[in-house]
Design a protein around this nucleic acid. Sequence first.
DNA 1: GTCATAACTTCGTAATTAATGAGTTATTCT
DNA 2: AGAATAACTCATTAATTACGAAGTTATGAC
Lengths: 125, 125
Amino acid sequence: MTSRKLNSTNYSNQVYLEERCTLNKLINLLSKRWMTEVLFGIEEGNNRFTTLKDELEHISDNILADRLKLLEEYKLISKESFSEIPARVEYTLTDTGRELSNILEKLCDFSDTCMLSHQQAAKKY
Amino acid sequence: MTSRKLNSTNYSNQVYLEERCTLNKLINLLSKRWMTEVLFGIEEGNNRFTTLKDELEHISDNILADRLKLLEEYKLISKESFSEIPARVEYTLTDTGRELSNILEKLCDFSDTCMLSHQQAAKKY
DNA sequence: GTCATAACTTCGTAATTAATGAGTTATTCT
DNA sequence: AGAATAACTCATTAATTACGAAGTTATGAC
């Protein structure tokens, strides 16, 4: 994954928004593809690289690795490596991760009504 | 803005995720740049194209127009045109929009602690 | 009749993000 | 020795999203 151009308007606008409100930072994180599904997957007990990969059918290795790394960086999940054969690594939600998950569930309930009604409206015309 | 390639993996993965959970649809909408700020801006009373533009300093016309159109499409805001001179158009949050805004405020409180602690951790190393 | 303003739209390009595919390390099973 | 498995990494390419600048429509003021 290539690094960002620090002198672009695109970048400086993102910084501007993140400074305006940290929500923009969080949404930027959560909006990366597969991110919420990885989080929910771990919450539901799919706590290994391969089980997550199996559950999320179409995700590619590098994306899953990246999302796990980000979630760990933001302390939403924690990683534990067991020195077994073959190697085993387990991920679990942190308290912060669980807190986030709870808020997202509310957002999810909301989106069920909001997004579905939009879908129907879009179909009609 | 160019249209999507309907036969790409990129596209079919997005569809897959949106079918899995409507939250992915909502986050996809909210993650478009400036989207939450436009929503909050309207809530705070900046309900015209130009006042929003002034408040959001660096936003460009076409992006603001697009975000307003999307928010209206999803019935999060409503638009009223007054036949005055010069033309006046006003945007206001719908009930649904206000409901969303409330949930987002909770997410915002969360991100204040979560994202700020990450920032400090990142600075240390 | 030219200028100004509000609220947009359109087009081309730059920047970012996702996907594909091959390679890595360590270890055991055959 | 060769194949298999878990959990990754890296480079290249494809797709999407954001930006910049100019153009549009309607109306009234000068």
